[in-house]
Amino acid sequence: MKEDDSNAESTPSKEEIDALLKDMPLFDLKSVKNTLYKRSIRFRVYWLVLMVVTLSYVMGWFSGALVPMMASSFSNLDADYQLHQLRFLIGFLMIAAGTIAINFDRHIDHMFIGIFWVQLYFHISGTLRLIRSLPDGETFSLTTYTIIQSVILLLMLGLIIEERIYQRNLYRL
């Protein structure tokens, strides 16, 4: 009987749960802004540039400007094109996941480390495919692709480093 009482006390009521959740921001853009303002200027710059590069990439994809530079244009394999489409989708999901992590201000470094490694896999396999597919003397596509991917990776590395510094400083306080 006594045990039942303690169980009843340890379980919050519906009203208590509602009261606790009332002020919890779910997906509010103000939270992304708040998280960014807690970080260093470098973090904010890296994030902004990453978004700009991503947006440019999206615009390049939808305008068709990027298509002639992709491996599928040289290999004439549908699989290459489909692979890029799938990776493009995964890239979007990763951006969404990163934004959600920033919104909730939780596990940002872990999230971006995961994204970094996946992006590195895309970068290495994509570059290898281009090297193998490109005709002799064609270096523009390879250079452009490598630069874009490397910039994205470096920006993410910058975000991870800045987040680690922020977490370390927070821990010291």
Partner: peptide, 25 residues
């Protein structure tokens, strides 16, 4: 934990690539 998380994500992505795209090639 982080090493495992990264490996798991990459394993799932490779699975999706194989299943959705590379099945015919």
């Amino acid at each position: 934990r982080l090493t495992l998380a990264v490996l798991t994500v990459v394993a799932w992505i490779m699975f999706f690539e194989d299943y959705l795209v590379l099945d015919n090639v």
